[in-house]
């Protein structure tokens, strides 16, 4: 390698060091795709485990109006997620999670607009759209923090569950949920909620950090000097993937 040092720009466009360009994608972009495939496996594993657990539990079979929280069957999701900040006690099923979905889709749009601006070497627009994307990411995280907090603290009156404590079956009022107790249904339901939305939230958080880094480098002229805004595109791939995962979490966790 040392004997083969070339000045930047002397390399053929997009060529890898072997002198070819597999799948007409740069090295970094292809590696991002393969990383995302491996991440797909991780998220699939979580969702597959969720599906298996759900199908091995009894479903609620009564009338929708008669639904009450019980650990004897899997809860109806729209009865679990029906709270919206500042509207205490008002039943608004799935409204808040709908807002979160909208925020994430909108931030995906601003991300792809930043990528498009990068193709034109339009630094001002890259900065503008990256800032919007970062704002969207933080807003989503804030919403998720509120949702977690509400889920953990539970409803005003809690729910009475038949649980086994010290080998004796007793009726107990449970407020909210943690990894061992859950007022909304079987404890496994809360475990999956924490693991799946938590793992997704961690991805959003990492994405926001990467987006800030990209914004900083764009704003300080790093990519202009390099002559390419391809890093925006690579991090963009990651950000869209996070949005994609949310689309699946939204369907399989909140809708069905």
């Amino acid at each position: 390698m040392a004997a083969h040092v070339t000045t930047p720009g002397a390399v053929e466009p997009k060529m890898w060091l072997g002198g070819i360009e597999p799948m007409k994608a740069s090295y970094g972009k292809l590696m991002m795709w393969f990383f995302l495939i491996s991440d797909t496996f991780t998220f699939s594993a979580l969702l597959v485990a969720y599906g298996t657990a759900r199908f091995s539990f009894p479903a609620f079979t009564g009338k929708h109006e008669d639904f009450t929280f019980s650990n004897a069957y899997w809860p109806v999701p729209e009865r679990v997620y029906e709270s919206v900040p500042f509207l205490h006690g008002v039943s608004l099923p799935l409204v808040f999670v709908g807002i979160m979905t909208f925020i994430l889709i909108a931030s995906s749009v601003t991300m792809v607009l930043a990528v498009e601006a990068g193709h034109r070497m339009d630094r001002a627009n890259v900065e503008k759209y990256m800032l919007w994307t970062i704002l969207g990411g933080f807003t989503f995280l804030g919403c998720q923090a509120w949702e977690w907090s509400h889920f953990i603290h539970g409803t005003d009156s809690g729910s009475v569950m038949s649980v086994i404590e010290n080998g004796v079956r007793i009726d107990k009022t449970i407020f909210g949920a943690n990894l061992t107790e859950n007022q909304y249904g079987p404890p496994a339901f809360a475990d999956f909620f924490f693991f799946i939305t938590g793992f997704h939230g961690t991805h959003v958080f990492s994405g926001v950090i990467l987006n800030i880094l990209i914004f900083f480098r764009a704003a300080t002229g790093f990519y202009d000097k390099r002559g390419s805004y391809e890093m925006v595109e690579k991090v963009g791939l990651y950000w869209h993937f996070v949005d994609l995962v949310w689309v699946f979490v939204f369907t399989f966790f909140y809708l069905v």
């Binding site: 466009p13 997009k14 193709h119 034109r120």
Partner: peptide, 18 residues
């Protein structure tokens, strides 16, 4: 791994990418 460089034409045309 050396960074791979793209050669983009700096396009000031506002209609580009429309």
């Amino acid at each position: 791994m050396a960074e791979v460089h793209h050669h983009h034409v700096h396009n000031q045309d506002p209609e580009a990418g429309a």
